[in-house]
Amino acid sequence: MKITPRNLDFHLRAARRTAAQLGILLAALSATLLSVGCMHRQSAAPALHAKATGSAIVIVSGDRQLGSPGSLLPQSLVLQVNDDQGNAVPGAVLQLAGPAGVTIRPAQALTDDNGQVTVRLTLGGISGLYPFTATSPDAHGKTVSLLIPEYAAGYQQQVGFQVNATYCSRCHDSNSTVEQVSNYDNLAVKPHAFTSGDIYNKLSHADLSNIIAHGGVAVNRSALMPAYGWTLSKPEIEAVISYIRLISDPPYRAPGLVYDKQ
């Protein structure tokens, strides 16, 4: 269209409109770029250059710890990167990620001379399972990864942990230490560790409180499982069940609840 004095006004207005649109577009663009830039700066510590690559990550210590919500776990998590032969690989990049609310220091590091990385983990503010994932690039441009569970125990689960430590773990935990010698090997019928989710997740709340309160005999199981209904209070039995649910692996999912996608 030709510009004439008569339609000049119209053209000017159109131009102004496009300019405004352009302006908004530009502003939006710069805002996105800026935010991307900021996010970039936030997440990306200076990229570490791997001096070596491994093919497996193993946990040396510090997994499956129980802490209060929001607190620093008492022990550091120590991870090791290994090669095909199972030898430690120094100088490999190891990255750690976790659910919302956690702090990981450092979230990224090169393995030391022993092929290990030591990380301090702080749990998020709500109780429950905190799965951390460790990843490390391998020689083929892929990544190896490993899931590391840690637990934040609320009041009830802390009570449950305590009840377990006083009454149950000697039989149910086959780990024997000098301070806490296990009785597991001495039992004719072997109990399951409370982490065995494939056993305990099948038992309902009523099943569990029944066997704990009335003993193995009451449910046609071995008498080696004593009755605790006269030793523990109801809240204590509830507490030990909530503890069993917390540390179960695979994680326990109560029937009838709607779960968030994580």
Binding site: I126, G154, Y155, Q156, G256, Y259, D260
Partner: peptide
Amino acid sequence: SLADVQQQPFRAHPRI
């Protein structure tokens, strides 16, 4: 039943 909800302020309080 809201014990596992991640969205605050709607999550149920853990048992005390």
